[in-house]
């Protein structure tokens, strides 16, 4: 389990990281916590001549809680998400979801930026960010742009991020006070990706529903969200089952995944509703 050799870079600002990316093109990749990339490198499924470690870039760290929006630096770890009380008060579903990712050791290293930028359909944060209607800040050689989480995912491991861009921050609108939120995840064991997971926000006449690991991208459904906003739980579940497109794998056949998806979604809806004020 020894990865191929590479040159190691540890820049201290975003601009330097981007210039290293520009210089080496496809041969270079950034590393955040490394808990998705290093396993891929050990399996030699990722072969990179240059690894750019983002750990010393201060501008990608920190959690800012504003009245209307929360900003997460891309290098904020899952552990930091879990232990930040201000964040738990503003957007409680983030802690609830982060606690269900991997295991304690992985959560100390794994970052929210890595989780959303990687484009792995198994990751929990992309679906959650679509539910929350978050947007991602991308910085590249031509400047900074913002892409909505709901527009970011194109296919498994393919996103709107260009090769020479780095996802630096995540902006999340703070949900209204009366909103109930819940994240439900079925997994085979600690550390596993979801068989199915559901992120639900509901209350005050609006709703948002997204699911994870049931297609090659996260699935946010406008129709399912609208149904739930109108109080139609069965319509919401039916619309979501129509929107997902699971494939059979070692987590089970398609019928089973659809069954688990419906169970997770119903549980998340019930819990979110019980929390709505």
């Amino acid at each position: 389990m020894i990865p191929a050799g590479f040159e190691y870079h540890r820049p201290t600002d975003t601009a330097s990281a981007i210039s290293i990316l520009q210089e080496h093109g496809d041969d270079a990749r950034v590393i955040a916590g490394g808990h998705s990339l290093i396993p891929m490198m050990k399996l030699r499924m990722a072969d990179l001549a240059h690894v750019i470690d983002l750990q010393d870039i201060q501008e990608m760290k920190g959690i800012e809680i504003g009245a209307d929006s929360v900003t997460l630096g891309a290098m904020v770890t899952q552990h930091e998400l879990i232990t930040h009380d201000g964040l738990a008060a503003a957007v409680p579903i983030i802690r609830e979801a982060a606690l269900q990712i991997a295991d304690p050791q992985v959560r100390y290293m794994g970052t929210v930026g890595g989780n959303v930028a990687n484009g792995d359909p198994g990751n929990d944060m992309p679906g959650l960010m679509q539910c929350l209607d978050a947007s991602f800040e991308l910085v590249g050689p031509d400047g900074t742009r913002t892409v909505a989480a709901r527009d970011f995912y194109e296919a498994a491991y393919f996103t709107a991020r260009e090769d020479e861009e780095i996802l630096t921050r995540i902006m999340i609108p703070v949900p209204a006070a009366e909103t109930g939120q819940a994240y439900e995840k079925q997994k085979r064991k600690i550390g596993d990706y979801a068989t199915a997971a559901a992120a639900v926000m509901v209350g005050g006449g609006s709703a948002s529903v997204a699911m994870t690991n049931l297609a090659d991208t996260p699935v946010w459904s406008e129709e399912a969200s609208a149904a739930l906003a109108g109080g139609d739980v069965e319509g919401c579940v039916a619309a979501m089952l129509d929107a997902i497109d699971p494939v059979a794998d070692n987590r089970g056949p398609v019928e089973f995944k659809k069954h688990v998806a419906a169970v997770m979604l119903r549980r998340a809806i019930a819990r979110a509703m019980s929390r709505a004020g």
Binding site: I38, K42, H79, Q105, V106, Y108, M109
Partner: peptide
């Protein structure tokens, strides 16, 4: 050696880390 078992756990700067998954 695949970040599952935790036998390689060490403490790095106050964090529990699986040292098989850190360069």
């Amino acid at each position: 050696e695949t970040s599952h078992c935790g036998a390689c756990t060490v403490d790095i700067d106050g964090k529990s880390v699986k040292s098989c998954t850190v360069f």
